[in-house]
Amino acid sequence: MNSLTLLWVFIGAGLATFLIRLSFIAVEGRVRLPAWFRTALQFVPAAMLSALIAPDLLMRGGELYVSPLNARLVAGLVAIVIAARTRSIGWTIVGGMAALLAMETLI
């Protein structure tokens, strides 16, 4: 793939992303969305974040790897517990990274 083709791919992807986001902003106030749809939209960020993180925690080499020896899974669970107890992003990151480093050092 030459660089000009790649440039057009980037421009097209950027334009598509922009138009999708603009569509929600442009119709705000003009279109009344159903209550169930507005309620469902509240869960989109958490669902997207989960979809991005879960494969990294649960998969190794394309296969499911649920084990106490899976350092990333253990660190993720530690981070979830810290987040639930402290509600602090900073402590969640520090605790999760400390757990990950400790597990990788021990394994």
Results as ranks from 00 to 15, higher is better:
residue 12 G to M: 02
residue 66 V to I: 14
residue 83 A to V: 07
residue 66 V to C: 05
residue 42 Q to W: 13
residue 47 A to D: 03
residue 88 S to N: 00
residue 95 G to C: 05
residue 7 L to D: 06
residue 80 I to M: 14
residue 60 R to F: 07
residue 40 A to L: 10
residue 86 T to C: 02
residue 80 I to C: 14
residue 72 R to T: 12
residue 102 A to I: 14
residue 87 R to I: 10
residue 24 F to V: 07
residue 102 A to E: 07
residue 55 P to G: 04
residue 80 I to H: 11
residue 81 V to P: 01
residue 98 A to K: 07
residue 99 A to M: 02
residue 76 G to R: 05
residue 26 A to R: 03
residue 37 F to Y: 11
residue 97 M to D: 10
residue 27 V to H: 08
residue 17 T to W: 12
residue 22 L to R: 08
residue 79 A to H: 01
residue 19 L to Y: 00
residue 2 N to E: 05
residue 19 L to A: 09
residue 69 L to M: 14
residue 72 R to F: 12
residue 28 E to Y: 08
residue 51 A to E: 07
residue 58 L to H: 09
residue 14 G to A: 05
residue 26 A to Y: 03
residue 49 L to G: 13
residue 73 L to I: 06
residue 81 V to S: 02
residue 73 L to N: 05
residue 45 P to M: 06
residue 64 L to A: 10
residue 42 Q to C: 13
residue 33 L to R: 14
residue 88 S to H: 01
residue 86 T to D: 00
residue 47 A to E: 05
residue 70 N to S: 04
residue 80 I to R: 11
residue 9 V to W: 06
residue 52 L to G: 15
residue 103 M to N: 01
residue 87 R to M: 09
residue 23 S to Y: 12
residue 82 I to E: 02
residue 62 G to L: 00
residue 21 R to G: 13
residue 107 I to L: 15
residue 76 G to C: 01
residue 55 P to N: 06
residue 48 M to K: 12
residue 44 V to H: 07
residue 23 S to F: 10
residue 90 G to Y: 05
residue 86 T to Q: 00
residue 4 L to T: 11
residue 99 A to V: 03
residue 39 T to F: 13
residue 9 V to S: 06
residue 8 W to Q: 02
residue 63 E to Y: 15
residue 43 F to P: 00
residue 19 L to D: 00
residue 40 A to S: 08
residue 5 T to N: 08
residue 36 W to C: 09
residue 12 G to A: 13
residue 82 I to Q: 02
residue 37 F to L: 13
residue 94 V to C: 02
residue 32 R to M: 06
residue 65 Y to M: 06
residue 4 L to G: 01
residue 6 L to P: 08
residue 11 I to A: 12
residue 58 L to R: 09
residue 107 I to A: 13
residue 67 S to L: 00
residue 72 R to K: 15
residue 41 L to C: 08
residue 1 M to T: 15
residue 80 I to F: 13
residue 52 L to R: 10
residue 52 L to T: 15
residue 72 R to A: 14
residue 37 F to M: 11
residue 5 T to G: 06
residue 81 V to N: 01
residue 102 A to T: 11
residue 95 G to H: 01
residue 28 E to F: 03
residue 34 P to W: 03
residue 69 L to C: 12
residue 52 L to S: 13
residue 12 G to C: 05
residue 21 R to L: 11
residue 97 M to V: 15
residue 44 V to C: 03
residue 89 I to R: 12
residue 93 I to M: 11
residue 77 L to I: 10
residue 44 V to N: 06
residue 10 F to G: 06
residue 98 A to Q: 07
residue 34 P to F: 04
residue 90 G to Q: 01
residue 73 L to Q: 02
residue 81 V to D: 02
residue 87 R to Y: 10
residue 69 L to D: 15
residue 10 F to H: 10
residue 75 A to V: 04
residue 34 P to R: 05
residue 44 V to F: 09
residue 11 I to K: 10
residue 31 V to G: 04
residue 106 L to M: 14
residue 56 D to A: 15
residue 74 V to H: 02
residue 18 F to C: 07
residue 8 W to Y: 10
residue 69 L to F: 15
residue 55 P to Y: 06
residue 67 S to N: 01
residue 35 A to F: 09
residue 94 V to Y: 03
residue 5 T to Q: 11
residue 32 R to A: 07
residue 67 S to F: 01
residue 85 R to P: 00
residue 103 M to W: 04
residue 6 L to F: 12
residue 102 A to Y: 09
residue 71 A to T: 12
residue 50 S to Y: 14
residue 49 L to E: 11
